[in-house]
């Protein structure tokens, strides 16, 4: 199934990459990410003077011989990250390859998570609910992640804020939101909620070229794919100018809010290639490294 979303060549190239994450889990198992915490790994970090209660096995006896003082060796603690991918499953995502790209991105991030021994949780935002995968860890779980993603379906209208607030975060981590963000709820509430839950935030905002640059077409009756709501619009230059302004304000507003909550924002067009998004845009934005 994984071949359907990402082919093996592409996955091989992904193996050299990892998600750039600062917030690691403060509880739970060890991973392969270096943490600021001192721990039990083999990698030396520092010395400090012995205090009562320290593990006697870590006393540096050579130093004692030279200096006649007791020092304890400190080692790096390597921890795992908990990465949540939130995928908008509203009908609006089913246009112009937006949905396909969203799935590929979710799969890529899943892969990056799993090969770096981080823990992954996939969350499909459907209507006002979340469909949450089990927590996955380890490369071998990638197929399950893909399978979970492939079982998703774009339909109906999604309230991202209501859906996302149903998530229980076990601790610090990284939350990746993949959506077109055509959401009637307050987007800032989502960011606030994630920040509150000590999440690093990445927002991958996918828009189709048609949404970015609607074509002129005279009098049209626009029908909302999610709600079947209709409005009559004269697609003349003046209306399109206005649309352009509204769109720019919409994107700018989301980008500003992400910045405000320490998140990273990337605007993606649905006709862009995964190659460009992953190896150029995301690396440039230091979302992956």
């Amino acid at each position: 199934m994984s071949k359907k979303l990402l082919d093996s060549d592409f996955l091989k190239r992904l193996e050299r990459l990892s998600i750039n994450i600062e917030k690691l889990m403060n509880v739970g198992g060890g991973g392969i990410r270096k943490s600021r915490a001192k721990g039990s790994s083999t990698e030396f970090s520092d010395f400090r003077e012995y205090t009562l209660g320290d593990d006697l096995r870590r006393i540096d006896w050579n130093a004692y011989g030279r200096l006649d003082r007791l020092f304890v060796k400190l080692f790096m603690e390597e921890r795992e990250a908990f990465i949540n991918v939130f995928l908008d499953c509203s009908k609006s995502m089913d246009f112009s390859k937006k949905g396909a790209l969203a799935l590929e991105l979710a799969a890529a991030f899943s892969y990056l998570t799993l090969i770096n021994m981080d823990r992954l949780c996939l969350n499909l935002m459907i209507s006002e609910d979340l469909k949450i995968s089990e927590v996955l860890g380890g490369r071998g779980q990638f197929n399950r992640a893909v399978s979970f993603l492939e079982n998703s379906d774009y339909k109906g209208k999604t309230r991202l804020d209501l859906a996302l607030k149903k998530k229980n975060f076990p601790g610090k981590g990284l939350s990746i939101i993949i959506s077109d963000l055509f959401n009637e709820g307050n987007f800032e509430e989502i960011l606030k909620f994630l920040a509150f839950n000590k999440q690093e935030i990445i927002v991958l905002h996918i828009l189709s070229p048609e949404e970015y640059n609607p074509r002129l077409g005279g009098s049209v009756k626009l029908k909302d794919a999610e709600t079947d709501e209709e409005i009559n619009v004269e697609l003349n230059p003046s209306t399109l100018d206005k649309y352009d302004k509204v769109l720019k304000h919409f994107i700018g507003d989301i980008s500003d809010k992400c910045k405000k909550y320490g998140g990273l924002y990337l605007n993606i067009l649905s006709n862009e290639t995964m190659e460009k998004i992953l190896f150029e845009d995301l690396i440039k934005r230091r979302i992956i490294k």
């Binding site: 246009f95 112009s96 077109d180 055509f182 009098s219 794919a225 709600t227 206005k242 509204v246």
Partner: peptide, 22 residues
């Protein structure tokens, strides 16, 4: 002639803002 051509769009989210302005 007033018949408008039907066009399905992903969302009217932005269009509503545009039209509200008009």
């Amino acid at each position: 002639k007033e018949e408008h051509e039907d066009l399905e769009v992903p969302s009217l989210y932005l269009w509503k803002t545009v039209m509200a302005d008009s």
